[in-house]
Every structure is written in structure tokens, then in C-alpha cells.
């Protein structure tokens, strides 16, 4: 892309009235995405937002770009086809915890495995919002919802370990209430060439209010969140007085920041560190930021290369193709 496009946040705001409940954290995510878009310096006609079904999946209607509001769970697959047909486009996927991890779990893991060049934003409110409050695959064990009045009996997914396990080349987490951090993570995701998975904590004040308070509230967040920075020690606490290190039994453990701490490295080829961070459980802090960012060829580019290579070797000739194999001629007499 040559030259700076003169785009502003308002260029990405569509003429549609936004219909989320008052106080929904989706508003903050939308505003942050719209704010970050001009920085990508991509003409908006080259941007497509693809979503599934859910409150979060209404997102494309509010972006003044191309967009598809698809069917429940299938956004990663729709986007894969789009990206393979048009590798030059910038394609975002917006999905929810139900959309992306329940009905569409299969498509999500395969899009990550294939490393399709997609930016996948998973809005996790740990509940089914649009269908009015049933348990989701990220609802904590024992959670009482409309569909689980006695509490859920199934364990939730950890979206980060799931994405890492599926082979995602970029995995990050942020939270809708910290829009500065969210914007940073979105910029990183957009810059990543390959499947970028961004897990976003998103409060649903109507059906699951306060789902992330234990980590993200002002009074607790310094101790309960671990802000990841590439090449920097893994430290947390009000004055960064606590650090993570490798303890006995191949485990991460927290202790006072004395001497050396484990240093974060997003680019590690093996999954050991990213997985260990992704799997941290309270009382250890929850990781925020980029866990993994590695470069691998994308499926859309590989497929296109195969086509171009084939065309170089054998220029397309439909007549020759039809006439291949054993051909014979019947004369006119």
C-alpha cells in the first residue's frame, strides 16, 4: 500500500442504529475497532467483517465496510472461502463464545490449524446473550443459568489453550473495559500475517453481569492480571513486585520479584511457555496481551501459489483439457 489514506474513525461507522443493550461491553469493542481501523491504512472497500449469529455477531452491520452476517458458528468457514478466493482482502471474523466455541468450534479450530489469514475476534461474555441467558462453553463449572438452574455440570473451555492447541500462529487476550490495551492488541492482530485469535472479555450486563470483575476491576486487576510484553519479565502486582518462574514439577509459580524472572517470548516455536501462561488458574494471574506470534505460511497464499505455479507449468487451455485422454474422430461420411 503506498501513501497514507485519509481515513478517520467516522469513515468506519455505518448508518445503522446500534442495537445492543445499554451498558453492553460490545459498544466499547466496536468503538475501539472503529478507532483502530484507520491506522491499518487499508482502503475500506478492501475490508470485510464476517460474523456468525449472536449479539456480538451483529457487529458487521455497524461497520461501514463490506460485511457478511452469516449463520450460527460458520463465520470462520465463510471467511476462509472469501480469503482463499480473494487473498488481497483484509478479513475480520467476529464471533461469540457460543458461536465460535460451541456450534462453530469445528470451524474455528480448522481455520486456526490452516492458518488462514483472518483476524478472529471472539467476544466472550461467558453466556448466550442473544438467546437470553443460557450457559455457554465458557460458563464456569456450576454456573446457574436459565438452562442450568442447578448449576452447570460441564467444564468450560479455556479459549486460549484451545486456540494454541489448534495451532494458532497468533493468540492474544484483552478486555473490553481496557480499551487502550484492546487497541494495542487489535493493532498487533491486524499486523499479523496469518490466523490471529483475539479473546476479548466482554461483560454482558443483562445476563451475566460482572463475569470478569474478579480480574478486571480496578482494585484487583494489578494482582490478578499479568500484562504480557515480549522480551520483558513476567511480572505483576501494583509495583510489579511479583514474578513468574518455573517451579518444581514443570509448573509456573509466582513469587516475589527478586533477581531474575521468566522472560516472555511470543515468538517461541514450541508451545510450552504460551500454553503454561494460557493455562494459569487463580490464584495465579490471568495473562493479558499477546501469548504467541509466530510466522507460518498461510493457507490462502499457499493455495494461490499452487495455482500460479500450475499455470506457469501448464498454461490454462480448456480445449486441450477437454481433448485429453483417448480421443477419436468420427468422419462426415
Amino acid at each position: 500500500m503506498s501513501g497514507k489514506l485519509n481515513l478517520a474513525k467516522k469513515d468506519f461507522v455505518s448508518d445503522q442504529e446500534v442495537r445492543w443493550c445499554p451498558g453492553c461491553a460490545d459498544f466499547a469493542i466496536l468503538a475501539t475497532v472503529q478507532k483502530v481501523m484507520p491506522e491499518l491504512n487499508v482502503p475500506k472497500e478492501n475490508i470485510v467483517f464476517v460474523s456468525g449469529i449472536g449479539c456480538s455477531s451483529r457487529f458487521p452491520y455497524y461497520m461501514n465496510t463490506y460485511g457478511i452476517h452469516g449463520i450460527h458458528g460458520r463465520a470462520p468457514a465463510i471467511a476462509t472461502g472469501l480469503k482463499m478466493a480473494r487473498p488481497e482482502l483484509t478479513v475480520f471474523v467476529v464471533t461469540g463464545d457460543g458461536d465460535g466455541l460451541s456450534i462453530g468450534g469445528n470451524h474455528l479450530i480448522h481455520a486456526l490449524r490452516r492458518n488462514v489469514d483472518l483476524k478472529i475476534l471472539l467476544f466472550d461474555n461467558r453466556i448466550y446473550g442473544l438467546t437470553k441467558g443460557q450457559a455457554s462453553p465458557t460458563s464456569e463449572l456450576g454456573k446457574k443459568t436459565k438452562s442450568s438452574p442447578y448449576g452447570t455440570v460441564d467444564r468450560p473451555f479455556n479459549p486460549l489453550t484451545l486456540a494454541l492447541g489448534a495451532g494458532a500462529t497468533f493468540v492474544a487476550r484483552s478486555v473490553a473495559t481496557d480499551t487502550t490495551h484492546l487497541a494495542q492488541v487489535l493493532r498487533r492482530a491486524a499486523a499479523h500475517k496469518g490466523a490471529a485469535f483475539v479473546h476479548i472479555w466482554q461483560n454482558c450486563p443483562v445476563f451475566n453481569d460482572g463475569a470478569f470483575d474478579e480480574w478486571s476491576e480496578r482494585e484487583v486487576r494489578d494482582d490478578s492480571l499479568l500484562k504480557l510484553e515480549h522480551g520483558k519479565p513476567l511480572v505483576f502486582g501494583k509495583s510489579k513486585e511479583k514474578a513468574l518462574r518455573i517451579g518444581d514439577g514443570f509448573r509456573l509459580e509466582a513469587g516475589p520479584m527478586t533477581g531474575s524472572a521468566l522472560v516472555h517470548d511470543e515468538t517461541r516455536d514450541d508451545l510450552a511457555l504460551a500454553m503454561a501462561l494460557a493455562a494459569l488458574e487463580p490464584p495465579l494471574p490471568q495473562p493479558m496481551g499477546v501469548l504467541r506470534a509466530v510466522q507460518r505460511p498461510t493457507v490462502d497464499a499457499l493455495a494461490r501459489e499452487q495455482e500460479e505455479e500450475a499455470a506457469r507449468k501448464r498454461p490454462p487451455d480448456l480445449r486441450a483439457l477437454l481433448h485429453s485422454g483417448d480421443v477419436w474422430t468420427v468422419g462426415t461420411n
Binding site: R74, A77, I78, G81, R86, H107
Partner: peptide
């Protein structure tokens, strides 16, 4: 595109058509 299932196969085709 050998998809992960038939749903992905057809929805990917729809995405491609959109493109």
C-alpha cells in the same frame, strides 16, 4: 478446498461468491 465438514464446504463457497 477440502473442508472440515459439509457445512464449511458450502459456507466457504458462499464466502467465495461474496468475493
Amino acid at each position: 478446498f477440502q473442508a472440515e465438514d459439509e457445512i464449511a464446504a458450502v459456507t466457504a463457497a458462499i464466502g467465495a461468491s461474496f468475493g
